[in-house]
């Protein structure tokens, strides 16, 4: 019988302890991903640890360093609409608004978006659908990958939360807490680059807040979707132009198991290289994989085109 116990811990410490004591436990905030995975019998949470009963986890406020602290349980809607975010981190607001639909954004949280289970066309499906693809490594611990059939190991499920690209570009940090202590981690170090073991969370650890440094200049965020306006991204591009010869960011997310930075391209961008050179270099650094919709050739062409447009637009931004 497929039942999960549902528990509402009163504090982070309690939640963390229960998570450590129950290896099958899952944290739930909005539940917009967890409940679907559970229904598809991809995860079997026991128990579900509901976080929204814990006070102060949804707050958004200035922090002592001139940046902003966003509680992990703040909804995407709350994040997108908050004056501090809209003013200081407009790309983050834009990314939050690009997620799904208003109904989902009212429940889904930024913590959930950051920790979103990596996604794959062949994984996020019902048991009936998966009968034909029963050897998926992530779904059943099987021996195959249907995205990269020639691979012998590894999983290529994608990091898919739209807010992650802007958070990497902004240089956000995560506040991680467990019953044994706490730590601060650069968000880039949070993703391990594997579709199955994709987050650097220790046993019992949870994200309690996203810490944003002081605002940078203006940039560009693009969520490219082939089809309708509900879907996950074919790719996300977040771009910050250099300021005074440094600090540019070219982040491509939702195309791999972790968000990707084109470091050498950023260096060229910092040095004032022409846009085409920056884009060509970036495309060399961003490995792309074909999915059912979105062949590698298609994604390369569109990503390069949108990156070129974004760099040109950034140039105009700087002149303003």
């Amino acid at each position: 019988m497929n039942r999960s116990f549902f528990v509402s811990p009163a504090s982070v410490g309690e939640a963390s302890r229960m998570s450590q004591e129950n290896p099958q436990a899952f944290f739930m905030a909005g539940g917009t991903d967890l409940l679907v995975l559970r229904k598809n019998k991809l995860i079997h949470p026991q128990p579900i640890l509901y976080l929204r009963g814990i006070p102060d986890l949804a707050e958004i406020r200035r922090d002592a360093n001139g940046g902003v602290r966003i509680g992990a349980c703040a909804t995407l809607h709350a994040v997108a609409k908050h004056p501090l975010i809209q003013k200081g981190y407009p790309l983050l607001a834009q990314a939050a608004l690009a997620v799904a639909s208003p109904q989902i954004r009212n429940k889904a949280t930024i913590g959930g978006n950051i920790c979103l289970n990596s996604r794959c066309w062949f994984y996020n499906r019902s048991p009936f659908w998966r009968v034909e693809y029963s050897e998926c490594r992530k779904a059943t611990g099987g021996t195959r990958c249907y995205v990269l059939p020639q691979s012998h190991k590894g999983c290529f499920a994608l990091q898919s939360g739209d807010t992650v690209g802007p958070l990497v570009a902004i240089g956000a940090k995560l506040h991680l807490v467990s019953s044994r202590g706490e730590r601060i981690l650069d968000i880039e170090d949070f993703y391990l680059g594997d579709g199955i073991r994709y987050l650097a969370l220790r046993s019992g650890e949870m994200v309690t807040a996203v810490l944003l440094p002081e605002p940078k200049g203006r940039g560009t965020f693009i969520k490219f979707r082939s089809q309708n306006n509900l879907d996950f991204a074919t790719f996300n591009l977040t771009l910050f132009p250099p300021q005074e010869g440094g600090g540019s960011r070219i982040v491509v997310s939702s195309v791999a198991s972790k968000p990707l930075r084109a470091l050498k391209a950023e260096a060229l961008f910092d040095q004032g290289a022409p846009g085409k050179e920056v884009v060509d270099q970036a495309m060399k650094e961003i490995p792309l994989v074909s999915f059912v919709r979105g062949s590698v050739e298609f994604k390369k062409q569109v990503l390069a085109a949108r990156m070129t447009e974004a760099i040109a637009a950034a140039g105009n931004l700087l002149k303003e």
Binding site: W121, W129, S226, Q227, N228, N229, D231, F232, V292
Partner: peptide
């Protein structure tokens, strides 16, 4: 989308159903 007869996208999101924002 059918691949070897197998329907790959049995849901609103991935079948591309047009919505109000389209």
């Amino acid at each position: 989308i059918y691949r070897h007869g197998h329907l790959l996208n049995p849901d609103f999101m991935t079948s591309g159903t047009a919505g109000p924002f389209d």
